[in-house]
Design a protein around this nucleic acid. Sequence first.
DNA 1: CTGTTAGCGCGTTCAC
DNA 2: GTGAACGCGCTAACAG
Lengths: 343, 343
Amino acid sequence: MSEITIREIAKRCGVGVSTVSRAINDHSDINPKTKKLIMDVIKETGYIPNNSARNLKRTDAKCIGVLVKGITNPFFTPMIEKIEQETEKKGYALVLRHVEAYENEVDVALELEKEKRLRGIIFLGGSSSHAAEKMRQLNVPVIFATIGSTISDGISRNSYSTVSVDDALESRKLVEYLIGLGHRKIAILTEGNDEPSIVRLRLEGYKDALKANDIKLDENLIRFVDRRIYTMKNGYEATKALIDSGVEFTALFCISDVLAVGALRAFADAGLRVPEDVSVAGFDGQELSEFSVPRLTTLRQPIDDISEETIRLIFDLIEEKRGHKHIIFPGELIEAESTRKVK
Amino acid sequence: MSEITIREIAKRCGVGVSTVSRAINDHSDINPKTKKLIMDVIKETGYIPNNSARNLKRTDAKCIGVLVKGITNPFFTPMIEKIEQETEKKGYALVLRHVEAYENEVDVALELEKEKRLRGIIFLGGSSSHAAEKMRQLNVPVIFATIGSTISDGISRNSYSTVSVDDALESRKLVEYLIGLGHRKIAILTEGNDEPSIVRLRLEGYKDALKANDIKLDENLIRFVDRRIYTMKNGYEATKALIDSGVEFTALFCISDVLAVGALRAFADAGLRVPEDVSVAGFDGQELSEFSVPRLTTLRQPIDDISEETIRLIFDLIEEKRGHKHIIFPGELIEAESTRKVK
DNA sequence: CTGTTAGCGCGTTCAC
DNA sequence: GTGAACGCGCTAACAG
């Protein structure tokens, strides 16, 4: 079946292609009658304009791109919803793109910017270190949401924005809370990523908390899951291994709520009660943490605030109202049922 | 900054544009030396081909589209991963697109097909009733995965495929399992969607089970959540309302695991023990169901099988090895800790 | 092996 | 208010 084009529509209506174009794009200077005729024919024929051709020609395209690294990450879904809503309010379209684990998000952004004529780019997740030269090529405003400001790698901090919590600080806050409950042997479930990332920052916060409280770091208490910090299975297995190892601990800090839920299950299976026998804390403050049994003590990230501020900032940047910023929101410690004073 | 184009690259290398094109697209008939030169210049300049222009021109584009309705649905994430892997193995690219709640997925598909020159389309989720005329316009193979075969609406069942479980049957199987445990007063948590959908099918399965076992349908036991069946909050609130209503029941069937986890929490808050005081069953068999406390009795959908078969089928259709099919996989009843014999 | 050229489908000047 | 013509950046004939 031969594709139907704008020319075909024009022919059928006995008008020129530009008139059809005007009708489609809601231009003002067009006779309402001809417009109606055209729209009717379009509906009849089921004509659909080819986006590639449009993007190629168009220069405006009120459109912002959101690049999400890690489709499996449930942490981003509420953010995306919020960002979608806000963007729509502004009359902009959103191009949502998942970035595969093996892809470089900046490369994808570069491509997408050209293809869709993006006016701004928001990164959710992913690595925080990027080649400066590539970043420079992105000539629309760029915001990293939920990725802290350790990004720079020879890149001027003035060339991009970040909106996030201070992962190291909040992590430390949570661990100090555990210490405050009397815990000294605190295990941590994290992932072994060497490049700057939230994973590393949260581990650093853990170390900072111990150091500040004169607790000797015990390498045996640092457990690494296999690559993914958003699967319960990984949390379960790492916790099981920790229990089986015989290492003593009274509290377990998981760097994500999802891992923590896996941990809860592992403790239940081992006949250990939470929080009576062991305290468990998560991180993120996702929906899950409110509905687990027991409810998770966690550090909630203000994702609504982060999302809203991200949108506000990107439009300010697009409209050149202000320059790049690095915004840090405080997290909120949620004291729930999974932790308690050590006996 | 003026965008850099293929012509610019050609000029800098002192070659023609088509040579550059060949270099980019890994064509065979090109001198390795010139190719290297070109690739070097491309790297230097940071040139990125414009996808819109490519798609416009290209006719082959080994590419299949996956349209996901409901980004919040955690049920799809493992499917998407699987589909991604399998597609890559075949040397095809995947275009993943989220369809907003208010969008019609077939419209989006129509657009995407033109824009990206898709060779096949897979729908995940969404409504199962579509206008026949629109469906007909999709002139590449279409598969609905996890949406049963009640789709037809004047559309020939030969014009599309489906790969799924029989939602009504599996739902009935689960409810009959509960009945087998001695439960007579079985409540159900579902969503009030009138159009043909998995939601309705699962409710029908519930009704079928009751009828087949001479249990009178009690409308008070059918509870509806607000629109979304994949939020714990909705499960929690509907269960709370059910408990507060004072209606008697000994088991609760939630049409998704996510709802069931919310229900577990609600029972815990109400001081009811699961399964001692009340049995709870979910549906889907997601990761979550294995890690909740207690583990959920649920009906597992064989998503790996569904995903693999979907991919196999779509490539067979593309290669015209066979015609459209409607494949039904059996679900698997997982008897876990959240249900037990009624006293 | 390589350069020239003709469109892909559309939006946008211009004239009218 | 409308149509003809041009070109967006690229790929694929085709000719060399």
